[in-house]
Design a protein around this nucleic acid. Structure first.
Lengths: 160, 160
DNA sequence: TTATAGTTGACTAAAGTAGTAGGGAATTAG
DNA sequence: CTAATTCCCTACTACTTTAGTCAACTATAA
């Protein structure tokens, strides 16, 4: 089982999309700035998210990505699956040929664990996250920081 | 978060100990044969398990490893922690400096997930696993296979 | 027509996994 | 005593994944 920066970045970026969606697409450059994630890396992640039908893209100036469904209808488990292959905890991928073609001693344990994790992450939608107080607070802080950075850029203190 | 063959091997090996313990120590060579895990790799894992006080060792002929506590008092979470560092799902290790020194959008989500997994794996003891039907069945099959292999060795059909 | 923004593919450094190899050191059965 | 057994320890390695860079290309809006 893997749960690394890859899956966490994907969820964070999708949440950023859900938070900042005002009907218009959001560019990866914006997400990159707000969430401090490498732009090129985001491109790779969103390529997979698009293939899985979680987001749709608009090219050209003013373009970007939008959620392709309501935030209520996208759960965290889907997002991690989309970029990470699986959140399966077994070694055999659930097939049961773990130990020399036969089921291993702990096969059912890992199946149970996989179910637990999957149920938990399936029960959490982007809309559910958006509604959380701790998420709103972080989002507001990020918007304040971004506004300040833009001001600094404008008066010439930020760039080269 | 990591849950790989390493942690699974450790739990499987500890369960083998719990199943086959008849007061006398079990050699890693036995576990290696029964569970089809490389002996050298088992040695590395048991080095950590011993450092964490989960098993105690007896050297010399007839030696091996024993659980250093009752099987009721050893949970799966401990075993994985012992070999794997942690089953923490956050990027920051729980410290909260995930994104540029500040808490990230999804920090609390990963904390909640870590709690879920930890609670689940803490609720399962080796004794609990030993009592499961699916575990007993696999263990019996493994014992049958081992007996057959020993017979083959004895009549000279197995070795060099 | 030009800057913007997505799309794609190749590449890379670093880290972790799953081992292998080989030499010890303690202990005990014979 | 000695030889076999078993734990103990270190170093090494092939492989995979992660996280990220770079460069070229396509669509599109202003």
């Amino acid at each position: 089982m893997r749960l690394t920066t890859k899956g966490r970045y994907a969820v964070t970026a999708m949440l950023d999309l859900a938070l900042n969606a005002e009907n218009k697409p959001i560019s990866l450059a914006d997400i990159s700035r707000r969430q401090d994630i490498s732009l090129s890396y985001l491109e790779q992640l969103f390529s997979k998210l698009r293939q899985q039908g979680l987001v749709s893209s608009v090219r050209g100036p003013g373009g970007g990505y939008k959620l392709s469904r309501d935030a209520e209808a996208i759960c965290v488990a889907e997002i991690i699956d989309a970029v990470n292959e699986s959140i399966d905890a077994t070694n055999c991928g659930g097939s049961g040929n773990c130990s020399d073609g036969q089921i291993c001693l702990t096969h059912h344990l890992w199946c149970d664990l996989s179910d637990q994790i999957h149920q938990f992450l399936s029960s959490i939608s982007l809309a559910g996250l958006v509604a959380r107080n701790d998420v709103r607070e972080v989002a507001e802080r990020q918007n304040r920081e971004r506004d300040r950075e833009q001001t600094l850029e404008f008066i010439g203190a930020g760039g080269a």
